[in-house]
Design a binder for these strands. Structure first.
Length: 577
RNA sequence: GGACGCGUAGCUCAGCUGGAUAGAGCAACUGCCUUCUAAGCAGUAGGUCAGAGGUUCGAAUCCUCUCGCGUUCACCA
């Protein structure tokens, strides 16, 4: 029951009829690409508005006003149309009879489980990789945003019919793992020798590695020969990684996040995928031994010419070609990442999404180039960048320093404000804009705090049902025509916008739109609530059961929609404040 | 210096991928509790959409340049 889709289909039919009736020669497909049917910004201009006349005027060589005048009659045949008019530069505005909205409401309530079902994904696979934090320590505040964003996006895409894989790439190879092993060994020795140790600069000082030391003692006793470290490297590595990955997964679980797939970088390196990408690149002539120019503009001090194996990523719009092998002959991080993306392409057989932190912006174009080359341009990859989160306490920045060990972990944040608050607030801003997270404000019980505001609206819905002694579940709308007040109709119209919001959020990969929708829905509802004070349109009218029933039904529709939105964000609704 | 992103009301931000008179919230001022939660609502005021060109029926949105802020910049991960 997507009312916009319903009328859009009518509009398409009308356009075709218009064309054949008047023997025009424009190409319908081209017009449909640009055709819109939207609620006008200002409701004075009616319920829906189309740009048809304006986009046709060039092809027909007629003014858009004249086209609009001629087209109006086709629209007035649509079911439920009350009035059609032409305004502004050539908008055709439609106003519906109130009945259309009332029928929508009763329809929506009858199909409350699936009225907003959208089949955008049509079961297609999509892989979304997010978090992928280095397995060297607990998740911190900075990871929270990418985690919530990625997870909400995954949930959103699932909702609209995609088969979604939530994936975490574990960077368990390379230098940082060496450091991790060194750090863990220090903690092990600390425990065995019972002498406290200073963690040198460059290694990981966090207390959590003491647990790893303990785990090593439990598993191997105090007789581990740690010199030379090669002898125990694998053992320590595996105990450290196990511990840290369990810690990370635990933190994610507290945020309501469960990944489907964890892929190990180490396994990618040891597998056959790297030779695979070489084959593909060779067959496309995208690989060569060469020397890179120094980056434009900078003058690196230790610049030296180096012949390396290079990928011609510049063919696909990257600013420079990229090294696949280091001068010592080992693979670069980018090469293994390319192999990893080939792995994702092979497994997914569908589009990819990467969620990255803002510090990786420079990396995007080479990954895009890689995916295009490796998939023969058949797979699209969308990289979403999450900007910084500024942690504040009542407006003042919280100072963090990794060295002093007082950085705020994800787990700290969740413990302080709860999972639902973290999830909501992280989505109250576009992902590519930096976001303030103020520990005081997000817990405030006031309108300034959007989480509260939305939850309060839902609690109020529930409060009305409590007072009415009617159970929300058992309520069946009897006579929608009893809803007559413009404010009631306005609320219904806004609910009718929900599937459209879902659709736009999903297509643009922008879960924040759901938050904004819920805030606005709450606002309209709070407003109607207060009308009970001065206009005497209370929801519960003691001596008019039918009217009460109709109004309660509207409240139910609001509650259903709020809950639906929250459920996509994986947030629990609150029933009583 | 190059690349990418951002610049919208005093502050914090939306703006449905090119539409009509650019919208919210805070802060400021004015009102609304004998009545379903005032933890809320209604109203007033507030704008050169950083600036300058261009593209077209139409630009905050697309293109070019300038200014400002941020991130990033050969073998790291």
């Amino acid at each position: 029951m997507n009312i916009y889709k319903f009328y859009f289909n009518h509009l398409i039919e009308a356009v075709e009829k218009f064309k054949s009736d008047l023997k025009y020669s424009f190409i319908v497909e081209d017009i449909l690409k640009k055709l819109t049917l939207e609620p006008p910004k200002n409701s004075i201009n009616g319920d829906m508005s189309t740009n048809l006349a304006m986009i046709l005027s060039k092809d027909l060589k007629l003014s858009s006003k004249i086209i609009a005048e001629n087209f109006m009659v086709y629209i007035s045949n649509f079911p439920g149309v009350d009035n059609v008019n032409v305004a502004g530069p050539g908008f055709i505005n439609i106003t519906f009879k109130q009945n259309v909205w009332l029928e929508f409401l009763s329809n929506m309530l009858q199909n409350s489980g699936n009225w907003d079902k959208l089949e955008i994904g049509k079961g297609k696979n999509i892989n979304i990789e997010y978090i992928s934090a280095n397995p060297t320590g607990p998740l911190h505040a900075g990871h929270a945003r990418g985690a919530v964003f990625g997870d909400a996006l995954a949930s959103l895409l699932t909702e609209v019919g995609y088969t979604v894989t939530r994936e975490y790439y574990i960077n368990d190879a390379g230098n940082q793992i060496e450091k991790l092993v060194d750090s863990s060994l220090l903690r092990y020795n600390e425990l065995v020798t019972n002498k406290s140790i200073d963690i040198p600069e460059g290694l990981y000082p966090g207390e959590y590695l003491k647990e790893v030391g303990k785990n090593l003692v439990e598993k191997y006793g105090d007789k581990l020969e740690t010199d030379p470290k090669e002898k125990v490297f694998e053992k320590v590595r595996s105990v450290s990684l196990d511990f840290i990955m369990r810690m990370i997964q635990n933190d994610l679980l507290k945020l309501g996040i469960e990944m489907d797939v964890f892929t190990s970088e180490k396994e990618i390196i040891s597998g056959h995928l790297l030779t695979e990408i070489l084959k593909i690149l060779e067959s496309k002539n995208l690989i060569f031994n060469g020397v890179l120019d120094p980056p434009k503009g900078t003058h690196p001090k230790n610049w030296e010419k180096r012949e390396q194996l290079l990928f011609k990523s510049s063919v696909y719009g990257d600013d420079s070609d990229r090294a696949l092998k280091k001068s010592d002959g080992t693979w670069t991080y980018f090469a293994t990442d390319m192999a990893y993306h080939l792995d994702k392409i092979n497994r997914t057989k569908g589009d990819l999404i990467n969620v990255l932190g803002a510090d990786h912006i420079g990396y995007i174009s080479r990954i895009n180039a890689a995916v295009r080359a490796l998939s023969n341009d058949t797979i699209s990859i969308d990289t979403k960048v999450c900007a910084l989160v500024n942690l504040l306490e009542d407006g003042k920045p919280i100072k963090m320093s990794k060295r002093a060990g007082n950085f705020v972990t994800l787990s700290d944040i969740i413990n302080a404000v709860g999972k639902d608050v973290v999830r909501f607030i992280m989505l109250t801003r576009r992902n590519d804009q930096s976001l303030d997270f103020d520990f005081k404000k997000v817990m405030e019980k006031s309108k300034e705090n959007p989480v509260f505001y939305v939850q309060y609206a839902h609690a109020r819905c529930n409060s009305i049902f409590r007072s009415s002694k009617v159970k929300e579940k058992e309520l069946i709308l009897k006579n929608p025509k009893r809803l007559k007040d413009v404010h009631e109709i306005e609320l219904i119209k806004f609910i009718a916008l929900w599937p459209r919001t879902l659709e736009l959020a999903a297509k643009n990969h922008e879960p924040h739109r759901i938050c904004y929708y819920l805030i606005e829905l709450s606002s309209i509802f709070h407003s109607l609530w207060n009308k009970g004070k001065d206009n005497n349109i209370k929801f519960i009218v003691e001596d008019d059961l039918e009217l009460t029933n109709a109004r309660l039904s509207l409240v139910k529709a609001v509650a259903l929609t709020i809950r639906k939105g929250l459920s996509i964000l994986k947030i629990e609704p609150i029933f009583e404040m």
